Computed example of a mutant assay.
Amino acid sequence: MKKPILIFAMLFAGSFAFAQNTATVSQTGNQNSSTTEQTGSNAASVEQVGSSNAANQDQSGSNTASIVQVGENTTNALTFDNLAIQLQSGQGNVATIEQREQGDSFASQEQVGDGNTATITQRNPWGNPAAPNVAFQIQEGNGNTATLNQFNGGNYSEQSQLGDNNWSLVQQAQSGNQAFHVQEGNSNYAFSGQNAGNQLAIIDQVGDGNIATTRQRGGSVNSVFVEQFGNSNNTGAIPYWGNAGENYGIDQTGNSNLVGLSQQGDFNNHFVRQNGDFNFVDIDVIGNGNSATILQFGNDNEARLIQRGDGHRTTITQTGNMNYANVIQR
């Protein structure tokens, strides 16, 4: 009878040694709340400085999570009424949320799988507090990376990735920006940079190896809609900051510009640059290996492109005001 008892004791000791969770919570201020639930071998850290902040963490497996909500020593206003939620299941996932200065911001991260990384940084420090920042990150699969930087207030972002080794980055400055990234498949790449206020960027990619990068800088009320369904479609560049004179993806400078792009197929490459006000581009592609470059410099220009089939090439350059171009390739 001693041998079974000894085996049970060894198994119990082994499970105790490997299932070690670590949680560290530090709160300064009033009416802060923190809830951490861990199953497996996870590490969690919560630090809240200010008042009425709430942090919720739920981890299963072997993951790392950190929530930081701080206000002191950066501006005169404490962080307050922020809410951060982290849900992780799997192995080797890392989630980080950091909300600073003015409050009322909301951040949520959910990761299922292995080796995913999610990072949210939200700040609302300039002048009087603006509207809250809101951020959602959802990743299911392995090796995905989602990064969000929001500066000032009133910005909204959603990043959703399903598959493996997808990459998404959103950078928002000023106020009133909205960005949505949806990627389903493997090894897709999306970037949206919004350096002025009241910009809208939507990227939806389904397939493998697709690239979409958008830049909106200066002015306001610019809008970009990118849809890519298939494999190895390209509306941008890796890295997103490189070769801006050619493969800039979609680049808008000015006010009230609009780009709509839909690609279905494989190995399509399309690039758009708008510099001015009230310019419009619409691209609709079904096929493989098609490409186009559309440049607009001026105001109230309109360019439309339809490509059906394979291997079509188009270049449209509009310089001046109120120009119109319509290209149909079959």
Rank of each mutant, 00 (worst) to 15 (best):
K3Q: 15
I5K: 05
L6A: 15
F12A: 12
F16T: 10
N21L: 04
A23T: 10
T24W: 04
Q31L: 13
S33Q: 11
S34W: 04
S34L: 03
T35I: 14
E37Y: 13
T39P: 02
T39Y: 13
S41G: 11
V46E: 00
E47S: 14
A54W: 11
A54P: 02
Q57F: 04
D58A: 14
S60H: 13
T64E: 05
S66R: 13
I67A: 02
V68P: 00
G71Y: 01
G71I: 04
E72H: 08
T74W: 09
L78C: 06
L83D: 15
I85T: 14
L87Y: 15
G90T: 11
A95K: 01
T96S: 07
E98N: 11
V112F: 12
G113A: 04
N116I: 04
T117R: 09
I120R: 07
I120V: 14
T121M: 07
N124C: 01
W126S: 10
W126M: 04
G127L: 05
N128T: 09
P129C: 09
A131M: 09
A131S: 15
V134I: 14
F136A: 06
Q137H: 09
Q139G: 09
E140Q: 13
G141S: 05
N142Q: 13
T145Q: 10
A146Q: 01
F151N: 07
F151K: 06
G154I: 02
G154K: 01
N155M: 02
S157D: 08
S157G: 13
E158L: 12
L162V: 12
W167G: 07
W167Q: 12
L169E: 14
L169Q: 12
Q174G: 02
N177Y: 02
N177H: 03
Q178Y: 12
H181D: 08
Y189M: 00
A190L: 02
G193L: 05
N195G: 14
N195M: 11
I203Q: 15
G207E: 00
G207N: 02
S223L: 12
V224M: 01
Q228K: 06
A237L: 10
P239Y: 02
P239N: 03
W241I: 08
N243S: 13
N243T: 07
G245W: 06
G245L: 11
E246I: 12
T253E: 11
G254N: 05
N255D: 12
S256C: 00
S256E: 03
L258F: 14
L258T: 12
L261K: 03
F267E: 06
V272Y: 03
R273F: 07
I286Y: 12
N288S: 13
L295F: 11
F297R: 09
N301M: 03
E302K: 06
L305K: 05
L305F: 03
R308Q: 11
H312Q: 10
T317L: 05
Q329F: 04
